[in-house]
Structures are given as structure tokens and as C-alpha cells.
Design a protein around this nucleic acid. Structure first.
Lengths: 187, 187
DNA sequence: ATATAAATGTAGCGACCGCTACATGAAAAG
DNA sequence: CTTTTCATGTAGCGGTCGCTACATTTATAT
């Protein structure tokens, strides 16, 4: 009975791949079925409906991102070093699919979709907490604020990147250098 | 001949309204036609196809935003005062539809849509230049960088707002206050 | 007044969408 | 071996989509 179990997991992996490479806009049952190597009919055998299917695949995407961030953990860095580091990270080919998908989720959230809003918030919160854990601060009670600032700047750069405004991004990085935020003159 | 002229303009106004209140996702010919008070058949009488229709409506949205920013121009402000001002501005009910639509455009751009990318870039560039014109700097050669930084932070806050992460937004604003960026102790 | 051109209505095509009814083959349970 | 449950295929329904063919009314030009 139920040779399902393992098979369903394999399908979910493929669905997550599809979402990361093609985005939500291309996530019809028929297209997802092709990526999963089965028929759309079978997709609805493994999932009660499309909503549950997407939710399951997005949950895996979240887990993958968490793992990716864990593997990217480095020595802590002061604010001014962390920002260029993050900017480079978001341009990495292995990370971009996640930022692209998160952007799509956020846009859907702005349009009122509650499920996507919750999912996007999970992803953003994960990333924020990762930043907070990697940020080197002079005074511990500044950690939350400086991490939030770094996060906002980087997410702003994601938006600018999406519309090909690289010039503004590099100017913003120069702007960061003008600040005194966690600047360690001695290293 | 051609009693069109004025009528088409009125239709474009209604289409822009529709885009701003319902977003691109709800912009089917039939729905737009209802908002315009005509039939979908007539929409394709006034526009060659849906793409041109959306392009025309978005061009008006751009012009409206420019006018909105012009009317919101104030005395110049230093960096630390400008950021809370911008954050409040983006929460204004008259501005939010534009940020919401720009977010949707940016997400489509990240997915590869070249037309939406161009449109979103126009909108973002307009806003960036407005910020640069309102920012009060100590040294003129810092204007571009600080305006870019302010813009990135604010756009990041737009994303966070979309997913209901108001806590992180307020922390980011506190982070700004920790910096020395254009801080005028004497006023 | 008549001919021409523009404005508008009605109806529907073909594509994709999420989803389901029905049948058949395979496997597990008794 | 039989019965029951699961796995999978085929086909299609009802919906929305962008778009168009065809006809009709209305306005303009001559």
C-alpha cells in the first residue's frame, strides 16, 4: 500500500525547482506537471488542489533557502563590510532565484494575497535574522536596528536590480561608505 | 470624422484608475472595459492590442506620479529627516497605489518582461531624482550617493511593508538615526 | 440625398486554466 | 483466488483569456 510516500517528496523537489526557475506566473498545473515528469491528472492525485501544491512546494523553497543561508554563514562583519558582501551574495546565481521568487511573492502580497504574504514574510524574516547573526556590532543593543537597516538597503537594491538600475545600487553602496555605521578604522 | 480624440483620453484616465486600484493582475480586457464603461470590443477599437492599451495607461500613471511628486515637493531636508518623511509619504493613501503597482512591475521585470522593466525603471528614476532634489547635503558631491542610499532604504521598506513587517521597518528607521549621515546638530 | 467612413453590438474562436468523471491496470489484503 | 484499494490514463467540462469576423447603426463628406 502507498508506494506514494517517497514519490511525492521527489515530485515536490521538482515543483520547487520549477518555481525557482520559472516563477509563480508560469506555475500552471499543466506546466508544473511537465516539470515533475507526470501528468497534471497525477498532480491532483498527490495534492488536494493547486493551492496545497504551491504551498507544499513553497515550504520546501523556504527550507532550501534556510539551508543555503546556513551554508553561507561566515565570520561576522561590521556594517560597512557586510553590505557589499550582501550585495555580491544577491548577485550569486544560486541566490538570485530566491530573491526573484520572494519579489514575486511580495508583489502578490501587496495585492492582497494573504497566503503569499505569510510565505514572503517567512522568507524575509529568515534573511533578516541571518543578517543579524552575521553582523558585528560595537554595542549589542544596536544589533536589531543595524540589521534592519542593512536588510532594508539590500532589499531596496534587489528592487533596483530587477529594473536594471545598477548605477543607483552602486551609488547607494558609496552612500553607505559615507556613514559612520560600525566603521572599524583599525580593522 | 473622429469624435474619438477626446473620448480616448477619458478612457485612458479610467484605465489608469483601474491599474492603480486593482493592479496588473486584474487587468484583463473585459475587466478594464467594465471600468472604462465600454465593451471590450470597443477597447480594441481604441487600442491596437492589449499591450498598447496597457502601455498607454501606464504612461499616464507615470505622468500622474510625476505630478504627485511635484505637488509634494517641500523644503530640502537633511538625510536623517528625509527618511522618516519618505516613509510617511509611502504610507499615504494617495501614494500607496503607485508603490503597489511599481512593485508589481518590478516583479514582472525580474521575471524577464522587458517592457515592464523599462516602465518600472522610469518610475523609480523619477522618484530617485525627486529624492535627490529634496535632499539637503553638506557637500554637493555627496548628493547622488546619499539620495541613492535613501532611495534604496525606502524601497526596501516598501517591500517590508508589503509583507507586513512593520517592526523591521521601524527598526531600520532607528538604524538610520544611529548614522552620522547629514546630521545637522544645529538645525 | 447618397456614398463613405467611423462607431458600436453580437457572437464566437481557439488557447489555456483548474479541476473532475470514468475507466483500466496494478498491487495489496483477505 | 478473490476482493478491495491504489495508481494512472483519457477525455472533457465550464471558465477566462486575447482577439476577430460580421453586421448594424451613426456621423460625415460630397
Amino acid at each position: 500500500m502507498k508506494k506514494n510516500e517517497g514519490k511525492r517528496d521527489a515530485i515536490v523537489e521538482r515543483l520547487a525547482d520549477h518555481l525557482l526557475t520559472h516563477g509563480l506566473k508560469e506555475a500552471s498545473l499543466r506546466k508544473m506537471a511537465v516539470s515533475a515528469g507526470i501528468s497534471d491528472r497525477m498532480l491532483l492525485h498527490y495534492f488536494v488542489d493547486k493551492d496545497e501544491m504551491i504551498a507544499t512546494a513553497l515550504a520546501l523553497v523556504e527550507r532550501r533557502l534556510t539551508a543555503l543561508l546556513d551554508s553561507a554563514r561566515t565570520e561576522s562583519m561590521p556594517f560597512q563590510a557586510l553590505l557589499p558582501f550582501l550585495a555580491a551574495m544577491l548577485n550569486d546565481a544560486s541566490v538570485r532565484p530566491y530573491t526573484r521568487l520572494a519579489l514575486e511573492l511580495a508583489a502578490a502580497a501587496a495585492g492582497g494575497d494573504e497566503f503569499f504574504r505569510t510565505t514572503a514574510r517567512h522568507i524575509f524574516t529568515n534573511f533578516y535574522e541571518w543578517i543579524a547573526s552575521v553582523l558585528k556590532v560595537e554595542e549589542e543593543d544596536q544589533r536589531a536596528q543595524l540589521a534592519a537597516l542593512a536588510f532594508a538597503i539590500i532589499e531596496g537594491c534587489v528592487l533596483l536590480d530587477a529594473v536594471d538600475s545598477g548605477l543607483i545600487v552602486s551609488r547607494a553602496m558609496q552612500g553607505v561608505a559615507l556613514s559612520n555605521l560600525n566603521y572599524y578604522p583599525e580593522g
